[in-house]
Amino acid sequence: MRDDVIICRCEDVTYGDIVRAVERGLTTTEELKRILRCGMGPCQGRTCSRLITRIIADKTGRSIEEIEHPVVRPPTRPVEIGVLAGDDEDRRGTGAPAGDDEG
C-alpha cells in the first residue's frame, strides 16, 4: 500500500501515518485515535475503523479478533450542542443549567 493512501477520510490520516505510529508502539485503536485523531471525526470511525484494525493486525502479527475496538458512546451521530443542552423557553435567560435542574 502506498503511504499517501487516505485511511481516515474525516481527519485526513494516511496509511503511512498509521504504520509509523504502530511501529512506534501505538498498537491499539484507542492509542491511535488519541495521537492521530483517526476515527474522531464526524463519522466516528464508521468508515475507517475496520481498515485501521486490519493495519494493526498486519503490522503486529495479531489476529483481528484480538484487537480491541474503540468504546461506543452516544450520540450515534454528530448533533448541535443546543440539541443536547436544550433550548427550552423556560430555561432561557435564567442562568440555570439547560439540563437537569439538579445537574
Binding site: 487516505i6 477520510r9 474525516c10 481527519e11 485526513d12 471525526g41 464526524p42 463519522c43 464508521r46 468508515t47 451521530r77
Partner: peptide, 22 residues
C-alpha cells in the same frame, strides 16, 4: 474539501454514516 489536505470529497455512503457530503 477535506480539513487538512484539502482533498476533494463527494457523495459516498448516502445514508448519513460517513462525512463525505458535509
Amino acid at each position: 474539501r477535506s480539513i487538512k489536505l484539502k482533498r476533494p470529497r463527494g457523495f459516498f455512503c448516502a445514508i448519513g454514516r460517513c462525512s463525505s457530503c458535509l
